[in-house]
Design a protein around this nucleic acid. Structure first.
Length: 486
RNA sequence: GGGGUAGUGGUCUAGCUUGGUAUGAUCCGUGGUUCGGGACCACGUGACCGUCGGUUCAAAUCCGACCUACCCCA
């Protein structure tokens, strides 16, 4: 295989400066660009296609579980937002508020939703009357606004797109089952679709959602050793139900408080995808989510007749693949050089490239190149569809394997505070350690190491070891994962 | 939160110190030569120099404020 060099494209190397590399890739792969509004980005077709795919997959799972899509207003009257104390305290610092409309000052300012609990639950109270109305499961796909001081494309933007599921249940058990079901959808989504192996678990009390009883999250391990909170699922308990009077009459005619959940996944996921799989040549997309899975590149030549037959043959192969259900796209642009075209497709992360020139047209073969490994080969036309399917599933699984490997490499079990800080010397990584779960201790850990508890892994929730906290030495019973957060 | 860097055709950029309407490249268009890892020639289109204000006969350039983005550190 000829060595692949990237000297001419002026893309920052991922290993040299991952932050600059990330910005370069987002812009040059055509995922998004900046707008005139602080912290708000324009999601371009290539990036939006990834979001549409996310919607398609999640919607199918939601609906199969009886979750219905609906839509609530973008404006939230301040008095509603203020009904749940912890909730308003948590979101106030980053609220955008409309004070004027129609040329007049509004009698009551309207917040632009940072999340929709309050506006939805004001209505849910009316929808839920009887035990027969439960569970109520509503989801909405929308934009929300949180005025962030520091923003990055996709990872943290002032406005972002997400889905927010909101459910109402008769009791805690039913609500908790929902919380865990949503969490499992997210875990599965990252693993099966984005080829990212995440950690899944419970957040510490100081990291939980404002107004929630408990928050669970999906955390992904990024190549630089930092953590990205990639989806969340909250058990809200009865906090909001009390504030918004969401009660029902049970089968004995007794008025009973409801238990609620909310859960969401946002366009931040796309940032995680870019960071997880991209390389020095640009984006690398897992085949399942790639808007284009195969690009068929018609190669021109000195001989006009040969070039024409190459183009015709490339069209035929593209049709074949499309009929076989492969998302294939034809590139017959002869105005740019071979190298230019290849680099553009590599930047966009298309998993498989077929190169079709006079040689292939004559021999009825195709030359294929894998985007993730740059491995190259030739296949006969009759075997093309099968070969492409093999390559696509091979790329999907090897990306996931690499992600699992990265997760293992970047997670270190530590037994003492000395070990904890030593592991973090000169690098960033996830650490698993016994922790007392005390907020004061948590703050000290953060001050000294910048790391925070990311999650208590799901299968360790019932852990009950008799040990001491890695930091303060108080009694501790469960191992938590710590890392520096994005 | 602290420190730094930068904003000039669609994109990247020279010019700024020492004020006189803007350099080059790329993209795009036309024609031609090319074509298996970012080709080339010719001609052409495209800029109220981030915004607002000040100084001046004259401001991309000097002064002030603001906006936006990026980097590094908390």
């Amino acid at each position: 295989m000829a060595p692949v060099t990237f000297e001419k494209r002026a893309l920052t190397k991922k290993s040299e400066n991952i932050a600059e590399w990330y910005n370069d890739v987002v812009l040059r792969a055509g995922l998004a660009e900046y707008s005139e509004i602080k912290g708000c980005m324009i999601i371009k077709p290539h990036g939006y296609a990834l979001w549409e795919h996310t919607q398609k997959v999640l919607n199918a799972w939601f609906k199969a579980d009886g979750v219905q899509n609906a839509y609530f207003p973008v404006f939230i009257p301040m008095h509603l937002l203020q009904k749940e104390k912890e909730h308003v305290a948590g979101f106030s610092p980053e609220l955008a508020v409309v004070t004027h409309a129609g040329g007049e000052e509004l009698a009551e300012p309207l917040a632009i939703r940072p999340t929709s609990e309050t506006i939805m639950y004001a209505t849910f109270g009316k929808w839920v009357q009887s035990w027969r109305d439960l569970p109520l499961k509503i989801n909405q796909w929308c934009n929300v606004v949180r005025w962030e001081k520091r923003t990055y494309p996709f990872l943290r933007t002032s406005e972002f797109l997400w889905q927010e599921g909101h459910t109402v249940h008769a009791d805690e058990d039913d609500a908790m089952a929902m919380v865990l079901r949503a969490l499992e959808w997210y875990r599965r989504f990252y693993e099966e679709q984005f080829a990212i192996s995440p950690y899944v678990g419970l957040k510490s009390s100081s990291e939980k959602f404002a107004g929630a009883e408990r928050t669970y999250s999906v955390e992904i391990v990024l190549p630089d050793g930092k953590a990205l909170q990639a989806a969340t699922s909250h058990y809200l308990g009865t906090h909001f139900a009390k504030a918004f009077d969401i009660t029902y009459l049970d089968d004995a005619g007794k008025s009973t408080i409801t238990h609620q959940t909310s859960w969401g996944l946002s366009t931040r996921a796309i940032g995680g995808l870019v960071l997880s799989h991209g390389d020095d040549a640009g984006l690398v997309l897992p085949p399942r989510v790639a808007p284009q899975q195969v690009v068929v590149l018609a190669v021109g030549g000195k001989d006009e007749a040969k070039a024409q037959s190459a183009i015709a043959y490339a069209r035929t192969l593209t049709d074949h693949l499309q009929h076989a259900g492969v998302r294939a796209v034809l590139d017959e642009d002869m105005n740019h050089s071979m190298g230019y075209r290849i680099n553009e497709w590599e930047l966009k992360g298309v998993p498989v490239r077929l190169e079709i020139g006079g040689r292939e047209a004559e021999a009825k073969t195709a030359t294929w190149v894998r985007r993730d490994t740059f491995e190259k080969g030739t296949v006969a036309e009759a075997e093309l569809t099968g070969m492409v399917e093999t390559l696509l599933s091979g790329i999907q699984s090897s990306l996931l394997e690499r992600s699992e490997e990265l997760k293992r490499e970047l997670t270190v079990d530590v037994a003492s505070w000395k070990e904890f800080t030593k592991v973090l010397d000169g690098r960033k990584t996830f650490l698993r350690a016994l922790w007392c779960e005390d907020p004061t201790c948590e703050a000290e850990i953060k001050n000294e190491t910048k790391t925070t508890p990311r999650v208590l892994e799901l299968d360790r929730r019932d852990e009950r070891v008799e040990g001491t906290c890695v930091k303060c030495g108080d009694p501790a019973h469960r191992h938590w994962l710590f890392a520096q957060s994005y």
